[in-house]
Write a protein that binds this DNA or RNA. Structure first.
Ligand SMILES: [Zn+2]
Ligand SMILES: [Zn+2]
Ligand SMILES: [Zn+2]
Ligand SMILES: [Zn+2]
Lengths: 163, 163
DNA sequence: AAAGTGATGTTATTCTATAACGATTCAGCC
DNA sequence: GGCTGAATCGTTATAGAATAACATCACTTT
C-alpha cells in the first residue's frame, strides 16, 4: 500500500474542478463538439465532489440554481453527451455519475467505492485489465466493455472505523 | 482460448436446472433456512435459461402460471433470499438476475455478458480477483464486494457475426 | 387453543430512465 | 440582414426498477 488517492484526502478541490473543466473545454473543441453552458454546468455539478451523483440530484441542484426545474431528459441528455465524450462515468452499482479522472485513457477503468464516505476513486490498473482479458480469452469471449466496481472501505474510513 | 462454456453451447439444460434446484435444497436445509415453494419457483424461473432475467419478467411468468399477479415485493423478497443464500446473482449493468453456477465459492465472481445472445457466464478467475485485490491494496482500499461485469460477444456469436 | 415468528399478499410510492413532440438556438449560406 | 437545416433544449407523459408500510396467512412452540 503506497498512498491513498487525492480524492480520499483533504485537498483543494477547486483545483480538481478547474482542471476538469479546462480539460473538457480543450477536448471538446479539439473534437469539434459543443460543450454548451448546460453541459458545462452539469459537468461542474458532477465534479462538485468525488462522490458519484445521481441524475435526479443534478436535476435538483439545477432547479435550485435557476428557480425552475427542467425535465429529466434535459439532464440525461447532457449526461449522455458527457459519457460519449468520456468526461464522466456512470456507476451501474449506484445509478450515479462521476467525473472522469483519466480522460486520456479510453478504456473502462476500475472504480473503488467507499460504502462509508461514498467517495469513488477511478484507477487504470493494467494488470486488472489484462487479467480480465485473459479470463475472457480462456472461454473465447470477446471483451467490449469491461466494468469493474469494487465496494469497500477507503483508507481514510478504515482508520476512522478502527477508532 | 480453450473451450466455450456450456451455457454458450447446445446442451441439455434440464440438467442445469435439476442440479441447481437439488443443490439449493441441500444448501438451504444444511443452513436451516426454508426454500419455500415460492422461492423455489422463482429460482427455477431464473434458471430457465442462461440469460439474466428481470424481476418484472419473473413477475410476469409467475402471474401467467397462477392466473393472478402478486405484487413486486413478493418477487423481490424471494430474490433477496436467494441472493443472501448465494443461489442467484444480480447483474447491476442489466438490472437482472442470474442463477449462480459457483455456489461453492463465496466471492463475487466475474460475469461475461454477450450483447448478442444475452447469455451470461460466470467465472471464478482467481488471477482477476488477485489483480483487483492488488489494485485496491495499492491505494489502501479494503475490498468487500468486487463486481466485474464484462459486456462483449460470446464465442458462438462471434462466429455467427463473422458469417 | 394461544402466542410468536417468519413468509406472503396488497396497495401505494419512490427512484431511475426514456419516448415523443414542440420550441429555441446556432452555423453556414444567400 | 434574412433564410435554412441541424443540433440543442424544454415539456409532458410514460416506462421500468425497487421499496415502504401494513395486513394476512402459515408454521412452530408452548
Ligand atoms: Zn478533488
Ligand atoms: Zn471512505
Ligand atoms: Zn444450461
Ligand atoms: Zn452470444
Amino acid at each position: 500500500m503506497s498512498q491513498a488517492p487525492l480524492a480520499c484526502r483533504p485537498h483543494n478541490h477547486d483545483h480538481c474542478v478547474d482542471h476538469a473543466l479546462q480539460d473538457a473545454e480543450q477536448r471538446c473543441s479539439a473534437r469539434g463538439v459543443r460543450l454548451t453552458e448546460l453541459r458545462k454546468r452539469v459537468l461542474e455539478l458532477v465534479w462538485q465532489s468525488h462522490q458519484p451523483l445521481g441524475a435526479y440530484d443534478i436535476l435538483e441542484q439545477l432547479s435550485q440554481q435557476d428557480g425552475r426545474r427542467p425535465g429529466p431528459p434535459t439532464v440525461y441528455r447532457a449526461l449522455d453527451f458527457l459519457l460519449e465524450q468520456g468526461l464522466v462515468h456512470r456507476l451501474a452499482s449506484l445509478n450515479a455519475f462521476l467525473g472522469c479522472t483519466h480522460p486520456e485513457h479510453g478504456g473502462g477503468g476500475q472504480f473503488l467505492i467507499c460504502r462509508q464516505c461514498r467517495v469513488a476513486v477511478e484507477l487504470e490498473h493494467s494488470a486488472t485489465d489484462q487479467a480480465i482479458a485473459q479470463a475472457a480469452a480462456s472461454v473465447g469471449f470477446a471483451v467490449e466493455q469491461p466494468m469493474v466496481e469494487v465496494l469497500g472501505l477507503c483508507a481514510r474510513c478504515q482508520t476512522r472505523e478502527g477508532a
